[in-house]
Design a protein around this nucleic acid. Structure first.
Lengths: 197, 197, 197, 197
DNA sequence: GATGAATGAGCATTCATTCAT
DNA sequence: CATGAATGAATGCTCATTCAT
């Protein structure tokens, strides 16, 4: 199950919120919809999360954690640049395919959550997954296996195509699940940044 | 000037709406904010656009037109696959750089506008730029200059990285304007789908 | 009629608010009560006054003005210290007797209104009626007809008893209208601060 | 210490309530504010006082008792009308100066508490301090040392000025503590009701 | 066409109170 | 006695939309 949260009531609320946010969008979701979906009372929602934005922020964090942790764990075990690049694509594609609702939520939520009063907490936790990856890029680039690009372009060059396809899939514009294209996308990503293929 | 609209009052309203939508998001923008920004009265906004969604849809169309028309016009003049691919990147990158507010608006607007009652009108006009490009892809692929990928992947492979970088720039996560990376992004796009480089 | 306000709708709302505030207290009065009493819609109340506090502040000002203007006008015509002191008592007592609801409202409202965001506007307008009177006190005191007390005591010595009785009457603790005691209270006030009686 | 209450927890709660009520007003004070200020749990507050009004009533009684008892005790020892009148002023002024928070609370509380379900209990205990004093007034008036006024005016004539000054001080409108004016106020009170001075 | 007062359903949030542990 | 999660009615306020002038 996607959302890790020990407290049962909080988990119920977060799961209900995910369904509502995913179906109706964050702004159009009302507290009353979450209440009906979760079975908790309005007061209980506020007792645990303080506000609608509090729910959104808590869900955002919960959504991020599972994905990022797994990605980073696998990345740490890679032996080569090619393996590292492909792991990035694999974990992204597989997680989106397995958690479409959470993925859809993360897309909407960024804009919404990073304005509210919880922005700081999130920026600390978030700091773009890619900051964690920069050391790898630097090392492999220095080894000569990665082409030299402006630093800020690597994220887009490596995961841009993957993200775009996932976005199209989540929006229903294409039907084939991203994971079915994992090899193609991973290979393309590697070819894009590799010196020699 | 970005928004083409003969009627001055309507143009004022659309320009005001763009500023509001871009700064606050579509859902958080109120008619009263547009009224204050535009100088028009509430009644006038409703007289011209019928509803808030009417304003959003009109702006969406206005935003799309300049970009898509130019892109397609240039594309029609291309002589080679490489030229075509790069034109796609160039026009995308240059337009976003020149019209950041419109670009930001188009991102949000898709989800919002394509649900309201104006969806049909838009789907007709919109029909995803890439549908127009498929003939080109098909032709060049048959010529053997484009690698063979599942059809639904081409948009992502060609423009995914570009879109991702633009998205990051529009969100303030990177500072260098997309147009400054136009060559790198265009070359990368071409390398990604070219048979031989 | 007590509340001067040209705009009819605004006046209706203020009159309804006065009734509600006077009967139930400001904090216990809900917007819906004012709506029901006034016949205006919720939106209309907010259109004109912005908030519940806005209604309270507008009513406070309206209540203050009639009284203070009259008091000051009469005071300007006085020929002697005794006459001035008595005018203060007369106008206070008569106004409270004639406008018990407004008087009751002014009592509650001070604490409520002088905290909200309208405090500044009020402090400017208010600046305690007595600031206007200080010149008179100074002049008559220098003439030797008024006993010398610490400056800050004059308001209490002159109007304290009157205010206290009015307060008791407004609260229903005594039954005789203040105006019926106007001579006794005025004479007592004069005796309290006069050098020779 | 101002609030007499053997049970420590109850006293903590009452002291916390006094601070909250005094700072924010009774109606604006929430149970949760009292909880935070006192360190007791919500449940504990309800266990001891039954309701928010229960807290307010208990505090009201506690506040009243110290003051009224002392005032009445001293009054019983007076030998003359002048002494009696002045004792009333002294005890009032000194108690307010020594217990500004309690005094501020009593002002607000009257209106609030005398409506709730605890009104009866309080009216019994309260019964307006002055009812206790009427015998004295009657006696001295019959002796000819007190001027003859309508009975209901005596409270205002004797303590009105004092109360008004105290009220101004509690509201921050004047800075000098009431006790510093005790002689002036007491003398003025005596002059107001004395036959000969 | 333009204006802005009026409408009222809808929403986020608060808060006194209860009760199982 | 103490705790704090849970409850849900009540409230202030918003905002898209209408319509008389």
């Amino acid at each position: 199950m996607a959302i890790a949260e020990k407290n049962q009531r909080k988990r119920e609320i977060l799961e209900a919120a995910l369904i509502c946010f995913s179906e109706s969008g964050i702004e159009s979701t009302t507290i009353d919809m979450i209440r009906a979906q979760s079975g908790a009372s309005v007061g209980s929602i506020y007792h645990h999360f303080g506000s609608k934005e509090g729910v959104a922020a808590a869900l955002y964090i919960a959504a991020l954690e599972g994905h990022a942790e797994q990605q980073f764990a696998l990345l740490a075990q890679t032996q080569s640049a090619e393996e590292a690049i492909k792991i990035l694509v694999y974990t992204y594609v597989d997680w989106v395919t397995a958690n479409p609702q959470l993925a859809r939520y993360l897309q909407q939520a960024r804009g919404y959550v990073l304005n509210g009063p919880h922005a700081d907490m999130l920026k600390t936790r978030n700091s773009e997954r890619f900051e964690l990856l920069l050391p790898y890029i630097k090392r492999y680039r220095d080894d000569g296996v990665l082409s030299v690009f402006p630093k800020e372009l690597y994220p887009a060059l490596i995961l841009g195509a993957t993200k775009d396809y996932c976005r199209n899939w989540l929006a229903g514009r294409v039907k084939t699940a991203p994971s079915e294209h994992r090899e193609v996308l991973a290979t393309a990503a590697w070819r894009t940044v590799a010196t020699v293929v």
